[in-house]
Write a protein that binds this DNA or RNA. Structure first.
Length: 586
RNA sequence: GCGCCCGUAGCUCAGCUGGAUAGAGUACUGCCCUCCGAAGGCAGGGGUCAGAGGUUCGAAUCCUCUCGGGCGCGCCA
């Protein structure tokens, strides 16, 4: 509908150029917006005001010229010039009510744009290091990334959801050693646990699993393990040096194969938990992309070679540096360390290049707000690779702060006092968690009110939307008991009976749905869908209270039921995008 | 110190490419179930869009500065 009117304006523009009223070289795509209030019609255009200057005519006069040249349309009932020079469009009832037919015919496809093969994107999100369970901070990125991916998919993008698994870093080594030390404890060895080790109870669980598979095969005495190690931080030494030495010792004692046992056990166990956790949260991925795989496949060397060819690398202090400072970053960055190992940043560059080489036009990254320093760095990398930095898009998700009984819930990773995503889901439920996480703009800090999220009351915005859906289902359930039927064909033929203000408002609300999806996709803004669903539910509840649907008049009843069913379709489709259930009863 | 994000009703927040009288929820007050689900609806008050300049037909929106809050600035991952 919107496109249709934009096309009418386009035609008018062509005539204006031909008639010499505006310069022929005017390059302008007319754009429509929804009116704020129905007093101003359904759509409004500011075209006349935008063109007034170049045409050298008052906006309202120009608006008349535009209107005079609009082709006739069965969709447009009337136009008017308003305010400083807006052109308001009033739709015909036929045009307004056509959305009901669309929604019923298209069902789950209503509001979905067919996939454009040329619009291939990757969305990378969560990507938490597999060193422990996901906590509530990851939850927002997960909910945002999953909802955004679904919305992009609905808007016609071909979306690949990816989780970048950091299975190659020092953190993973520390994790593997932590498991090994707990394993040794279980074997009966007395060994001091390092300051930097992973403290959680889940480390014991993994250690127990290894022991039940391997028995005492990887047992060494406490003396062999700790003899000659540099002192730990709490022993007036250096905790980093201590833990690094411990990693080396583990490798020496067990050999590569033995070390791998603990490393893989830790990785597989924790990653498995994360996968399960996310799946229960309705968050899925097409690809769990291994960082270690990048190195093995030569992708890192490939990317570094590309930077070298483009003349962006130099050697200093035995390391290889990327001249990022000349490409917009604050400073130059090391890509190959003095010890010959590539940096984490080198992996990032390689992963980005790899995404483009797999044929994705744009790579979207969902990061926590604390990663904003990455933007300049990665953009510089894109430039250094000779790629368009526009193809790399970083979306920062601000932090969520939990509130319980009006007070901030204190969290700290160090003390292990963080609330896990699993605990949150168990406390408030997946539906509420998914909704609350995305109901604010991603660049806005989020106050997550736990009490509100789990309250089964009118205050809770999730229930408000779900209730609208349950009510609709209830209406259809009641048909039989009242000895009535719903015939969609009769309803479709009788749509012109929907003339109440509430009905027109609801029609407008439903017809906004496809536009909301388009905007939400373009602006990477799932919260727009959440807000829209609230608005749609409001329109429905208002209608429900003002008018009876199950009336004796067969034509009116079926027309209303068609409208109500169209509402239901929009509710279900929107909730689906946000990963929230649409219960038939509650 | 440098950089990024934010500042809108008592509270939590919408406000898309600059548009018409700045909107929701919540809280507060008063109404509405012999009627399809009251987890609902209707009505009411509540604002220096942090502040000051600037850009223009028009600024909550764009630019500059100031104030206030959050976060980041490793040959860590």
């Amino acid at each position: 509908m919107k496109k249709h009117i934009e096309e009418l304006l386009n035609q008018s523009l062509l005539h204006l150029k031909r008639d010499g009223i505006i310069p022929a070289d005017t390059d302008l795509q007319p754009q429509l917006e929804r009116t704020r209030s129905s007093e101003h019609g359904d759509y409004a255009s500011n075209l006349a005001m935008v063109l007034a200057r170049s045409a050298g005519r008052p906006p309202r006069d120009l608006a008349q010229d535009i209107i005079d040249r609009l082709p006739p349309s069965r969709q447009v009932a009337s136009t008017e010039i308003a305010g400083p020079g807006f052109i308001n469009f009033f739709l015909t009832h036929l045009a307004l009510s056509s959305v009901v037919k669309d929604a019923l015919k298209q069902g789950s496809a209503f509001g979905r744009e067919p996939a454009h093969p040329e619009r291939r994107v990757t969305v990378e999100y969560v990507s938490a290091n597999p060193t422990g369970p996901l906590h509530v901070g990851h939850g927002r990125g997960a909910a945002y990334g999953a909802s955004l991916s679904a919305i992009l998919d609905a808007a016609g993008y071909e979306v690949q959801r990816e989780y970048y698994v950091n299975d190659n870093g020092r953190q993973m080594d520390i994790l593997a050693v932590s498991v090994w030390l707990r394993y040794l404890e279980l074997c009966g060895e007395k060994i001091r646990f390092p300051d930097n080790g992973y403290q959680g109870e889940y480390i014991f669980d993994i250690a127990r699993a290894v022991r039940s598979d391997s028995g005492d095969k990887w047992r060494f005495t406490g003396y062999d393990v700790t003899d000659g190690l540099p002192a730990d931080g709490s022993e007036d030494g250096d905790s980093e040096l201590h833990v690094d030495a411990l990693i080396r010792r583990a490798n020496e004692l067990m050999g590569k194969a033995g070390y791998r046992v603990f490393f893989d056990a830790a990785l597989n166990s924790i990653l498995g938990d994360i996968q399960e956790d996310l799946e229960e949260f309705g968050v899925v991925f097409d690809e769990w992309f291994s960082e270690a795989g990048l190195e093995e496949s030569g992708a890192i060397d490939h990317a570094i070679e590309r930077l070298r060819e483009n003349g962006h690398l130099y050697e200093k202090d035995g390391a290889t540096w990327f001249r990022a400072s000349e490409l917009g970053d604050e400073k130059d960055r090391v890509v190959i360390r003095e010890n010959g190992r590539t940096t984490y940043f080198a992996s990032d560059i390689a992963y980005f290049l790899n995404k483009l080489e797999r044929g994705f036009g744009t790579a979207l990254y969902v990061f926590g707000a604390d990663h904003h320093g990455y933007i300049a760095r990665l953009k510089a990398a894109a430039l250094g690779l000779g790629e368009d930095p526009e193809r790399l898009e970083i979306l920062l998700v601000q932090f969520a702060v939990l509130y319980r009984e009006g007070k901030k819930v204190q969290m700290s990773t160090r003390s292990g006092q963080f609330i896990t995503l699993r605990e949150l889901r168990e406390e408030v439920g997946t539906d509420a968690a998914r909704f609350f996480y995305v109901m604010r703009s991603h660049d806005q800090h989020l106050d997550f009110d736990l009490d509100l999220a789990k309250s089964h009351s009118n205050e809770n915005p999730v229930y408000y939307v779900q209730y609208a859906h349950a009510r609709i289902c209830s209406v259809f359930r009641n048909l039989e008991g009242m000895d009535m039927t719903w015939n969609a064909a009769i309803g479709e033929a009788a749509l012109e009976l929907l003339t109440e203000d509430r009905e027109l408002a609801l029609l407008r609300a439903i017809s906004r749905y496809p536009e909301v999806i388009e905007s939400a996709a373009r602006l990477r803004a799932p919260h727009m869908v959440a807000h829209y669903l609230g608005d749609l539910a409001t329109e429905f509840h208002g209608y429900y209270n003002a008018h009876q649907f199950l009336v004796d008049d067969e034509n009116l009843r079926n027309a209303r039921l068609n409208l109500v069913e169209a509402t239901r379709v929009a509710l279900v489709n929107g909730l689906e995008l946000l990963g929230i259930s649409a219960p038939e009863e509650m």
